[in-house]
Simulated assay, not measured.
Amino acid sequence: MVLTKPKVSDKSKTEVEGVNVGWTNQCAKAQPLGYRKIVHLVGLGFIMCFAYLASISIINQSGQIHLLLENAANGNLSYSSISPAQHSQAPNFPSIFRQPPITAPQQQNTTEWCQPLHFKAEPGPVVALASFPGSGNTWFRYLLQQASGIMTGSVFKNLNLLRNGFPGENIANGSVSVIKLHKTTIQRMEAFDKLILLVRDPLPAILAEFNRQAGGQVGYAPPWAFKENNGERWGRFVYKRGVSWEEMNLAWFSHFSPQNRLIVFYVDLKTQTEIQLRRVLTFLNIPVRDAMISCALARRQGLYHRPKRILHFEVFNSSMRQTLADHKRRVYSILGKPATFEKKPLNRT
């Protein structure tokens, strides 16, 4: 018996083939559609990524704009009379700190100087102007520049100061009269030949620094900042900075010999400005000229003076006052200054 393959009718074959052909056609049609979807999804991903990066850029730019507006409100947007070319032509003295140079915008400065500011004729000792933040370092530099005509330097890169009367900002070598800094490290102290230590009472110094951090160079902390979290934030700031104030002043004082250090108290600089300026100029071996001293006294106010503001509450409680008084007593006893204390409420910020 011979087995034969059953025959499939043409109709059945057509139906089967039709099903196969139809399924194949549907797959063929689906492939281009899926490819387009993939392309669309990839494109959408690129668009979302671009939008995210653009939003980050806008946020950064808005932050810079906010900073510019804040500086403008504080009156900090006037500029240095030293052009970028002049700033880049500082004498090629070795810098004690390696920092990239700053290019100052070529704008007109509104500060009137007793004489045009200049570098030292010859490099001299590298002199630190050390102080706890909020102790009047910027005002001291301003007075010294008026009385001497020589630029003061700094280890910082404050563009507002660079543009507004301090063309020696970010210069830290013997070409400037003094170099501003705050931090205390053995490495930094050993980089200097001499020291001017500017000391201010810890209460107003800490308050000034709190205002600066919250409100800018001549701004204020908002009243609610002192009461935030029931005053916890402000309290932590006071106690921590009180310890730093004592440690910083004693470290700098003890590191330099008596012949290489000069102590200037902020209160004396305010009440005996002429006497203190003459002391400083003599210590720096800068000629003392009566005409320059008189000119500096006539322009003693400066641009970075924070005007007084009266709050309707006491910012330092009794515990804060006692703690800071203890810090002050220990420091002033070593520095040879009688420790007097303000008894009336300190609500002027």
Results as ranks from 00 to 15, higher is better:
Val2Tyr: 02
Thr4Gly: 01
Pro6Val: 09
Asp10Leu: 04
Val16Ile: 08
Val16Asn: 00
Gly18Arg: 00
Trp23Tyr: 02
Asn25Met: 09
Asn25Thr: 07
Leu33Met: 05
Gly34Ile: 13
Tyr35Pro: 05
Arg36Phe: 01
His40Ser: 00
Val42Leu: 07
Phe46Cys: 09
Ile47Pro: 00
Met48Phe: 03
Met48Cys: 03
Tyr52Asn: 05
Ala54Pro: 01
Ser55Trp: 04
Ile58Thr: 02
Ile59Gln: 02
Ser62Thr: 11
Gly63Tyr: 01
Leu68Ala: 04
Ala72Cys: 03
Gly75Tyr: 11
Asn76Ala: 04
Asn76His: 10
Leu77Cys: 12
Tyr79Ala: 15
Ile82Val: 14
Ile82Leu: 14
Ile82Phe: 14
His87Met: 03
Ser88Tyr: 04
Ser88Trp: 03
Ala90Thr: 08
Pro94Ser: 07
Arg98Tyr: 08
Pro101Ala: 10
Pro101Gly: 10
Ile102Met: 15
Ile102Ala: 15
Ala104Val: 14
Pro105Phe: 06
Pro105Gln: 12
Gln108Gly: 03
Asn109His: 07
Thr111Ile: 13
Cys114Arg: 08
His118Ile: 11
Lys120Cys: 05
Pro125Glu: 11
Val126Arg: 09
Ala128Gln: 06
Ala130Lys: 00
Phe132Thr: 15
Ser135Tyr: 02
Asn137Tyr: 00
Tyr142Cys: 02
Gln146Arg: 05
Ile150Val: 10
Ile150Phe: 05
Ile150Thr: 06
Met151Ala: 09
Thr152His: 03
Phe156Ser: 15
Phe156Asn: 14
Asn160Gln: 11
Arg163Cys: 15
Asn164Asp: 15
Phe166Arg: 06
Glu169His: 12
Glu169Arg: 11
Ala172Asn: 12
Asn173Lys: 12
Asn173Gln: 10
Gly174Tyr: 04
Val178Asp: 09
Ile179Pro: 02
Ile179Leu: 07
Leu181Val: 06
Leu181Ala: 13
Lys183Phe: 09
Thr184Phe: 04
Thr184Tyr: 07
Ala191Pro: 01
Leu195Thr: 02
Ile196Arg: 00
Ile196Tyr: 00
Leu197Thr: 01
Leu203Gln: 13
Leu207Trp: 03
Glu209Phe: 13
Ala214Ser: 02
Gly215Ile: 04
Val218Asp: 14
Ala221Ile: 06
Pro222Glu: 05
Pro222Asp: 05
Phe226Asn: 04
Gly231Val: 07
Arg236Met: 07
Phe237Gln: 05
Tyr239Met: 15
Lys240Pro: 01
Arg241Tyr: 14
Arg241Gln: 15
Glu246Lys: 09
Phe253Trp: 12
Phe253Tyr: 14
Phe256Val: 09
Phe256Leu: 11
Ser257Asp: 10
Leu262Val: 03
Val267Tyr: 08
Val267His: 12
Lys270Glu: 14
Gln272Pro: 01
Gln272Leu: 03
Leu277Asn: 06
Leu277Pro: 12
Leu277Trp: 07
Leu281Pro: 13
Asn285Ile: 01
Pro287Asn: 07
Pro287His: 06
Pro287Ala: 06
Asp290Thr: 15
Ser294Cys: 13
Cys295Ser: 13
Ala298Tyr: 04
Leu303Gln: 07
Tyr304Asp: 12
Tyr304Arg: 04
His312Asp: 14
Phe313Asn: 10
Asn317Phe: 06
Asn317Tyr: 08
Ser318Lys: 14
Ser318Val: 15
Met320Val: 11
Ala325Asp: 08
Lys328Gly: 10
Arg329Asp: 11
Val331His: 07
Tyr332Pro: 01
Ser333Leu: 01
Ile334Thr: 08
Ala339Lys: 03
Thr340Asn: 13
Phe341Leu: 13
Asn347Phe: 02
